[in-house]
Amino acid sequence: MPCIPDAVMLFAAGFGTRMGALTADRPKPMIEVAGRPLIDHALDQAAAIRPRQIVINLHYRPEMIRTHLADREKIAFSDESDAILETGGGLRAALPQLGPGPLYTLNSDAVWTGAPALSQLASRWDASRMDALLLLLPAEKATGYRGTGDFVMDEDGRIVRAKGAPSYAYLGAQILSPKHISAISETVFSLNRLWDIAIAEGRAFGVVHDGGWCDVGRPEGIAEAEALLGKARDV
């Protein structure tokens, strides 16, 4: 499986407004779950693939994240102080630090159990067939997920947008080729734009996560995430 990525884009620039008062004095990635900031849980996932480089985008109270990670190696920051660029724009701004070719992207507002998320993606990545490989769970098994599903997947793992069929939730972890990003003229845009191109070309695929996942986008997600982690420790 050629061209295994060695760089990680970690998204950490959002305001975390759904967390209410919890983000009044800190960015969402610094909210603690099971005694550790969310960003540390995300970095555990990244560490499993021993990346050459991790780039973290920052906007709200960036100094807290910079200080927390000051002693970490192989971490660089992409400053979005002037304006949040969304996931696609944020990735494009960070590409000079990430380097060419496919890369991992990872959200910083979730916790995981089971096999390391990025390692699962690496084991299935095939650059000859894929421009996007997304980590998924059946929507009903994704703790804290409130949608009906994002994608459907065929027997070969190829995905398309969900349209009412039993479907999978995207877990905020993927391998993505940024090769089409130059065709997007907007400064602020979502990675959905790149997914739509990959889907149209039949080069978007999914992998079902071997473990549990919990979204921590709302205050109640903290207790749900701690319960998930506790259950995994008890097994």
Rank of each mutant, 00 (worst) to 15 (best):
E63P: 04
G88L: 04
R50V: 09
M153V: 04
L134C: 03
D71I: 07
H180A: 12
K179D: 04
S167I: 02
A48Y: 07
W112Y: 12
Q120K: 01
L121N: 05
I222K: 11
L98M: 03
K163H: 15
R124M: 15
L171S: 12
Q53N: 06
D150P: 06
A183N: 07
T87R: 07
K231N: 01
L118R: 11
A200T: 10
K231Q: 10
R203Q: 09
A132R: 14
S167M: 04
R36N: 05
P100C: 06
I181G: 05
G35K: 12
A24W: 13
R72I: 01
A223M: 03
Q174T: 09
V55S: 01
A12I: 10
T67D: 15
R36P: 00
A34C: 07
T87K: 13
I31L: 14
M153N: 02
I159Q: 05
A117P: 01
L58I: 05
T187N: 13
I175N: 07
P5R: 12
A83I: 09
M64N: 09
A200C: 07
M153D: 05
T67N: 14
V33F: 09
R161T: 14
V33I: 14
E80F: 05
L38W: 09
E80K: 07
S177Q: 03
R124S: 15
I199M: 15
L91I: 08
A173I: 00
I159A: 04
A42D: 03
P138A: 06
I39N: 10
N192H: 14
P138D: 08
D234P: 00
R26A: 04
N192M: 07
A42F: 04
Q174L: 11
A42W: 07
L136W: 01
I39P: 02
A42T: 14
V235N: 11
T67Q: 14
D126I: 07
